[in-house]
């Protein structure tokens, strides 16, 4: 069994109005040192796969085909056992 922790983030060139809103919220709370906030997605994908390389390949394909949209997003992931 493996679990992939997948992080999907907006490409730097894409505006993130949601991140800006969060930044403004943090500023209102008094966190004056915040210079930028970007909101992304975090996914946990559990796989019934024993071989780590097979799991890596599968998660890579999942990211490319569905979990991230390469036009607007970047992705990275880490694989842990269990």
């Amino acid at each position: 069994m493996h679990k992939a922790r997948v992080y999907v983030t907006l490409k730097p060139s894409i505006l993130d109005p949601q991140g800006n809103a969060v930044k403004n919220g943090l500023e209102s709370l008094g966190f004056a040192d915040v210079t930028d906030v970007r909101v992304g997605k975090y996914l946990e994908v559990s796989l019934d796969v024993v071989d780590k390389n097979v799991a890596l390949e599968q998660v890579e394909e999942m990211c490319k085909k569905l979990l991230a949209n390469p036009v607007i997003e970047d992705y990275r992931f880490e694989l842990v056992e269990g």
Partner: peptide, 10 residues
């Protein structure tokens, strides 16, 4: 081509 993302004013 391209994509559609959140409106700038949310």
């Amino acid at each position: 081509p391209g994509a559609l993302v959140r409106n700038k004013e949310l």
